[in-house]
């Protein structure tokens, strides 16, 4: 790399000719563009929508925002439907992230020891998480179709008249969304676990083997504790994403039938757009979600730190 450069040892006159930039200035120069961009594009809108959450503003009403105090928030807290959507989102997050953890971790354990072609198989398994959620939604919708979709046929239900219409039934619609989410994101958990597993030093197992510890013991006492921090990070990421679940659900069910899959983000979207444009109320709801996400993340991070220390 250095051989292309003119002079690895600069002439002594150089520092005098060019004013030396101090480390302090340099670090400011390096950091501020990022901070300014983040403030302009993330923080300013964030405060703006905090302001809007205390108003009855509607983005299409041609009227200036009117201050309404905590009306939007009291309305949200008194709205049983919205609590139902929160509960639904929680259930979705729990089941979906749980399944992803089990499948992803299991896969990582299987792929941990390399074999011929394991590299290519890992990459193939990763493909779902690279795809656009919209495209994924579109495609699974087609696959779930009870007459010409392939899903029911694959699981052995070949009679379209009696096979379930996954997306059109309040009982199964949530499961359909979960199936797609698990399909798409188990690879992500796998990827994280795999990197955790690859970082476990071999000597731990060697020591265990000398002690003639059972594989079961090795798993509980070495593998799991060692992977736990990364596993928890994966769970944290996926939980946050589950609360933000939007494009996949919109693509699959639009929140329906009825409100069977009305996740909280879908609810925010339908309050904010979809002909309603209750900008103020949607902003308030979004803030409630943000607070919940931060609280959940904090609990996680604390647990995570405990696991690391312990």
């Amino acid at each position: 790399m250095l051989k292309n450069q003119a002079a690895p040892y600069p002439t002594s006159s150089q520092p005098q000719r060019r004013r030396q930039i101090s480390d302090r200035t340099l670090s400011q120069l390096f950091i501020w563009p990022t901070l300014i961009l983040l403030i302009a594009i993330n923080i300013v809108p964030l405060f703006y929508s905090l302001f809007l959450s205390f108003t009855n503003f509607s983005a299409i009403a041609n009227k200036p925002a009117e201050f309404v105090g905590f009306a939007n928030f009291t309305r949200i807290f008194n709205d049983e439907d919205i609590w139902g959507y929160f509960a639904l989102t929680g259930r979705y997050a729990l089941i979906s992230v749980g399944l992803q953890t089990v499948i992803g971790f299991g896969l990582a354990l299987l792929l941990r020891k390399k074999f011929r072609g394991s590299g290519i198989l890992t990459t193939l398994i990763l493909i779902p998480m690279m795809l656009s959620p919209v495209v994924v939604g579109l495609f699974w919708k087609l696959m779930f179709n009870p007459s010409y979709g392939i899903f029911n046929y694959l699981i052995g239900l070949t009679n379209p008249a009696t096979a379930p219409d996954w997306l059109a039934n309040s009982q199964t619609a949530l499961w359909a969304v979960i199936i797609v989410d698990v399909w798409m994101w188990s690879p992500f958990v796998m990827l994280l676990c795999l990197s955790g597993l690859s970082a476990i030093p071999d000597y731990l197992y060697e020591a265990a083997a000398i002690d003639r510890a059972s594989p079961w013991f090795q798993f509980w006492r070495i593998t799991l504790p060692q992977v736990a921090p990364l596993l928890l990070i994966a769970v944290l990421f996926r939980t946050i994403e589950a609360f933000k679940a939007f494009d996949l659900v919109m693509g699959l069910t639009g929140g329906g039938p009825g409100d069977a899959t009305q996740m909280i983000s879908v609810e925010i979207y339908s309050q904010a757009f979809l002909g309603q444009f209750r900008t103020g109320r949607a902003s308030a709801l979004a803030y409630v979600v943000l607070v919940i996400i931060i609280a959940v993340s904090n609990v996680y991070i604390r647990t995570l730190n405990k696991v690391r220390e312990g």
Partner: peptide, 12 residues
């Protein structure tokens, strides 16, 4: 800044 639901900032 990565935790916000995107809808929060979309309108502003």
């Amino acid at each position: 800044t990565r935790m916000l639901p995107p809808v929060v900032v979309t309108i502003p």
